[in-house]
Simulated scan of single mutants.
Amino acid sequence: MKTSIRLEEALSKLYIAFHNDELYPECCKQCAVGNILNNTDSWKHLSDHHGSTTLNYIGKVHQTLGRKFNGYSPLELLQIESIFLKACGYKLPLHYKNEKPKILSNKENLFKGLSEVIKFLCTLDGIDNVMDYTKLFKFKKNQYMELNQFI
C-alpha cells in the first residue's frame, strides 16, 4: 500500500511516542498533534481551547493562506487532536472542570486514542486504515470450505 510522506512521518512519530511513554494528552508538546509537529506547541495558537475544532483568528489566517504544518492544515490538526482526546476519554474542550480519565497515562486509553487518530489520518489520505486487522480473517467461501476439510 502506497502512503504519503506526511502519513508515514506522522505514524512513525506517534508509534515512537506511544512506545517511549511520550504520548500525554494534556501536554501540547506530547499530545497527538504535538508529537506530529516534532514536540512543539505552536499549534495551540490555532484555537482558543485545547480540544476545540474551531479555528481562532490566527488559525483562520493560516487556513486561508493554505499553510501546512508537517503536511497538515490547521483545521486538520485541530480535528486530529479532538479525535485523540475524545478517544482517550476526555470531554472537550479540555478544561479542569470537564470529565477526564482517572489515570491519565493508562496505556489502554492512549491506544484507543492512537488508533482513532491513525484511522482519521488514513481517511485524510484516502487509504484504508493501516491498523484494520479484520481483512486478515476474511476468507472466500471456497477457501473456508477447503480449510474445513482438514478438521
Rank of each mutant, 00 (worst) to 15 (best):
F69M: 01
H62P: 00
V117M: 06
R6P: 02
K91M: 11
I58C: 03
G66Q: 09
V61T: 08
L14I: 14
L46Q: 01
H19L: 02
L124Q: 10
T123Y: 09
K102I: 10
T64Y: 14
I118E: 05
H95Y: 07
L77G: 00
P93R: 11
P101V: 12
N109M: 11
K112Y: 14
N148H: 04
E9R: 14
I127M: 06
L110S: 05
H45M: 06
Q143S: 15
Y15C: 07
F84M: 03
R67N: 13
N38Y: 14
K112F: 14
F69G: 01
N148M: 15
L124I: 15
C27K: 07
C122N: 12
T64W: 04
Y96C: 06
G59Y: 01
L78I: 09
G113F: 03
I127C: 13
N142T: 10
K119C: 11
L7P: 03
A32C: 00
L78Y: 03
G59C: 06
D41Y: 07
T54M: 12
D41A: 09
G59D: 07
P93D: 09
L55W: 02
A32P: 00
I58M: 09
N106K: 06
G113R: 02
L147I: 13
Y15V: 01
F18M: 13
S115M: 04
E9I: 12
L92D: 02
N142F: 01
K135F: 13
H95I: 01
K141C: 04
L121W: 06
K112Q: 07
T54P: 01
Y133A: 14
L114R: 00
G51A: 04
G89K: 08
H95G: 05
L46I: 02
A17C: 06
M1P: 08
K100G: 01
S12Y: 11
L75D: 15
L110G: 06
K97Y: 08
T3G: 03
L23G: 00
Y57S: 10
L124F: 08
Y57F: 13
I151L: 12
S115V: 04
G66I: 10
Y133T: 15
Y72H: 12
Y144T: 12
F84C: 05
K29Q: 14
Q30R: 12
A87K: 05
Y144S: 08
K138F: 10
N109F: 02
K68Y: 00
L14N: 03
V61Q: 11
E26S: 09
I36A: 03
N129A: 09
V117R: 05
K141M: 11
F120S: 06
E9H: 10
E9Q: 14
M145P: 00
S52R: 02
N39T: 07
F120Q: 11
K91E: 15
E22T: 03
L136H: 13
P25W: 06
H95K: 13
D21V: 03
I151R: 09
L124P: 03
L85Y: 05
G89Q: 04
L14W: 08
E81N: 15
T64I: 09
K60T: 05
S82H: 15
T64G: 03
L110Y: 10
N38S: 10
F69I: 00
Y57Q: 12
H95R: 13
K112H: 14
L23P: 00
I151K: 15
C27N: 15
A17M: 09
L104N: 09
L114F: 15
E146Q: 10
C122Y: 07
L124N: 12
K141Y: 13
E81H: 08
N106L: 10
